[in-house]
């Protein structure tokens, strides 16, 4: 792809200390994100998917330095964000905005919509004061709200409308990259579709780049160009959307996709049932972190951590972290004591 690299994450680690013992020292760490590397190109939508505790939201927060990363480098437009002072970082924040799942939690309930947007513009000084009111109305119209709603308070809006306010606030400073952290997860389907369409329209209009963090694979398939699958703080698979959804290679991705109920009662599906729960990120399994639940796990998986790489049978843009991608694909390796069950009906 000839497109410009906008965001580059290299070797990012985010460990949270656990205090304990008699003197409250740090006795261990929650390894929320453990050495991940990926790139996002300008104008592209990249999604991070995974189940709770996989580190997807932590990644988003670490990129913005909302929490200081433990290790690693985050470059934006070739500027290393992790090396900036907080003051310099603030200048760059206008290029990187974030939208949260619950916009209400990140909005001051005593401010009107107009105040909220005005504040965003003031902090970044992106619009001269005289033009701000005009810009606010423009923004509201852009996100599908009306001028007369500018002086209302957040509680007067529905969930979907609040998310529109959150989007307007992010847009107020003309960002280049917007991180959407479960931005549509709390919305009802009919409203979610409205917001997803809005995000797509805005991307086209303003050449925005999205990092889309979500557990909903339907939403991810709809909005993404490329998809990153995370499990226990690691990237297990990364690739073009069609590759991930149509030709998943990592056993975890396959299991994840097969676990999602299909909204079609005639759909006959087989389902790779994963047993047990996700292990604790405090003490993740050695070797491949997925080996405790993987139906294909071999001794090698327990000892050696697989690298994220393009295997022979894969498209060049597609990488998976599994020792046995090829063996599983050509049927040499069969799942052990795992039933692949037809769904009862």
């Amino acid at each position: 792809m000839a497109k410009k690299e906008l965001l580059k994450v290299e070797g990012l680690k985010q460990y949270f200390p656990i205090k304990g013992g008699l003197l409250g020292r740090t006795v261990n760490h929650v390894k929320a994100v453990d050495d991940i590397t990926f790139t996002i190109h300008e104008g592209e939508t990249v999604s991070i998917v995974g189940e709770s505790g996989c580190g997807k939201s932590t990644t988003g927060r670490a990129i913005l330095r909302l929490e200081e990363p433990t290790e690693g480098k985050v470059s934006f437009n070739d500027v290393d964000l992790t090396s900036l002072s907080l003051r310099q970082m603030r200048k760059h924040r206008k290029d990187l905005q974030i939208i949260f799942q619950d916009p209400y939690a990140s909005i001051n309930p005593r401010q009107t919509v107009s105040d909220i947007l005005n504040e965003a513009m003031t902090i970044q000084n992106s619009v001269p004061p005289k033009k701000r009111r005009k810009r606010i109305i423009e923004l509201l119209e852009t996100v599908g709200l009306n001028e007369y709603q500018a002086d209302r308070y957040p509680h007067e809006f529905s969930g979907g409308q609040r998310q529109r306010i959150g989007i307007a606030r992010a847009l107020a400073v003309n960002p280049k990259l917007i991180i959407c952290d479960e931005a549509v997860s709390a919305l009802d389907v009919s409203i979610q579709a409205q917001v997803l369409n809005l995000l797509e329209e805005l991307q086209e209009e303003y050449n925005l780049t999205y990092l889309f963090i979500s557990h909903d694979l339907g939403v991810v398939r709809h909005i993404s160009d490329r998809v990153i699958v995370m499990y226990l703080g690691k990237i297990v698979e990364i690739g073009e959307k069609e590759e991930i959804f149509e030709k998943p290679k990592h056993p975890y991705t396959k299991a994840l996709l097969s676990a999602i109920p299909v909204p079609d009662p005639t759909h006959k599906k087989t389902h790779i049932a994963l047993k047990g729960d996700v292990p604790s990120p405090i003490d993740p399994p050695a070797g491949c972190r997925f080996h405790t639940r993987c139906p294909f796990a071999q001794d090698k998986c327990k000892q050696e951590e697989p690298l994220l790489k393009t295997h022979r049978i894969m498209d060049e843009t597609h990488q998976a972290a599994c020792h046995f991608v090829e063996e599983i694909e050509n049927g040499e390796l069969l799942p052990r004591d795992y039933e692949i069950k037809p769904i009862l009906n």
Partner: peptide, 9 residues
């Protein structure tokens, strides 16, 4: 409702 549902499949 069915038309607004993003599908993973």
């Amino acid at each position: 409702l069915l038309n607004s549902l993003p599908r993973h499949d």
